[in-house]
Amino acid sequence: MTRSIGYKGKILKGTTNILGMAEWNYSGETRNTEPSNLFNYQYMIQTPTTIEGGEISVTGDFLIGDPGLALIEEAFHLGTELTDLKLYVDADNYFIPDPNTILFDGTAQPSHVIITKSPTAVKQAASGIARTEFSAKVSGRLILQGADTSTLICETVGACDFDNSDSDITVIGRVGGYQSLVTGSSLHVVAQAGKTVNGLVTIALSEVLTVSELLAENKSPVFSITSDLNEGYGTYFFRAGVKRVSMTGSDIVYGGIQTVVMQ
């Protein structure tokens, strides 16, 4: 774990640095609840419902003619659903709208940001330097992304299946990181261990577990997921299969992988 140093941060719209900004704040997502009043019950019961995206606020110096600020103002006027606003916590790690927010039905829908307060909000004083601010509202969620050489966040999004045909254990997950070929809202890839998928993600099985180990220790096989592309951003769904030595029936109850460290 490392601390993030503030002066190394920045705010980008796509690849354009918004210059002069000095502070950003994201309020985070909040979970809405529905209260229930039950008979003969002393306490109000809260039932979790939807998750609401938070608000972003940014302040800094007002730099006349800054292209980044102009992009934000344009997005405000057009009501653009921004998917590429990046809030850097340090030189390498940033929050960005999750391009594959999962809906209840399992489909992916890009999160986005809408500018709700234009950077024409400017404050000036005779003895000061002009300051500006803008605000945005998140639909969906922001996710933290790292540099292409750092730890990536990878999570299992589906149950692990048992498949007798060509793969005994199938892990369905997704990995976020730098990629350059993503043009749509999501890219679904399917791979087996040791295969390269569309030249984007390589999944290699680095630890082979026997059936007895899997059963006895409830262990997860270890994957390494690598990418040789260094630009852009994408979240990729993958399916990794683990070939077993011998196994019968569906006698494995198995958990998924939680994190993957990029090599």
């Binding site: 920045k10 705010i11 210059l19 002069g20 900004m21 000095a22 800094g60």
Partner: peptide, 9 residues
């Protein structure tokens, strides 16, 4: 010093 993300005053 007064810092922004892109410069120092």
């Amino acid at each position: 010093d007064e810092h922004t993300f892109s410069d120092v005053k």
